[in-house]
Design a protein around this nucleic acid. Structure first.
Lengths: 151, 151
DNA sequence: CCCGTTCCCGTTGACGCCCATAAACCCCCA
DNA sequence: TGGGGGTTTATGGGCGTCAACGGGAACGGG
């Protein structure tokens, strides 16, 4: 399996470290990532984490823009400047910096959420909240499409 | 890694010196920059810092303009005259001159922001302000493109 | 001679490396 | 099917290294 799947919550220790779930670590290794890059999500209090290929998609998009327009500058600012490297230590842990805590609201615990090609980092409470909203939206979509709740 | 990525804030000492983040220094070395060149951003209270190839980007921009128009002359004045060399001392520090402080509003602390091919220098407060605006603009862009937030 | 700059050294705190422990998990076997 | 026992994982902590930082001293130009 080479995709990031499932989710789990781990505790942060006194030094600010937290273990990346073993399953995610094996995916990281299988994909040959030598370092992890974390990006602040635009519309969620979460970080997107993956290899540097996370940037490829954005950089291709930026290349399509006129490099001297504001949009291109904004995009570059977002994907190059609003990110951080996450170094895995020898025990497979990463440290939660203020940069991450500020955006996510993470305090003592971290929720890791698989997203296929990458994974996310959340404050567990906010993740639950977000999950409820997502389910609600999907439910409404289904009801609108079929004229009633599926069963 | 040969791109300027991520961001961090460092303090300025009593002599006006500030450490360039170690990661940025290694990129500078890897790219073979013998000296750093800093330009005043046109539309932001920030400095663009990089090798002399930073000028290529602006000269390319100037080439797009009609050389008989004032715009081209203005741009040339800006990129050839409104810049400064930044000397790295033996400990990897640069000096914050009044030239930089004037344009950026930098006081006691400096935020270094990776931008891929170059990096920027900001006053931390203004950076946060700018970042918020950028995220807002990009969000609107996303919503306009897809009719709703992604995912 | 003064002032600003550069070099060099010491301090401090953050981070990476290592080891220890405890809990969870898996597999084999009775 | 219900244990053992070994293995892996999560987590805590000691310790060394290095980056960031502060300050003294040497250097050089005006």
């Amino acid at each position: 399996m080479d995709r990031f799947l499932s989710s789990s919550v781990n505790r942060i220790d006194a030094k600010g470290r937290v273990s990346v779930p073993a399953h995610f670590r094996s995916v990281v290794q299988k994909r040959g990532y030598t370092e992890l890059y974390a990006l602040r999500c635009l519309d969620q209090p979460a970080m997107d984490v993956g290899g540097l290929d996370l940037l490829d998609r954005y950089e291709q998009r930026i290349a399509q823009e006129d490099p001297f327009l504001q949009t291109a500058d904004d995009m570059s600012f977002f994907c190059h400047g609003d990110g951080a490297f996450l170094k895995l230590d020898q025990d497979g842990r990463i440290t939660m910096t203020d940069f991450i805590r500020e955006h996510t609201g993470i305090g003592q615990e971290v929720a890791f959420v698989g997203r296929g090609q990458f994974f996310q980092i959340w404050e567990p409470g906010r993740l639950a909240e977000h999950g409820a909203k997502v389910r609600e939206r999907l439910l409404k979509l289904m009801q609108a499409a079929s004229g009633g709740p599926a069963q």
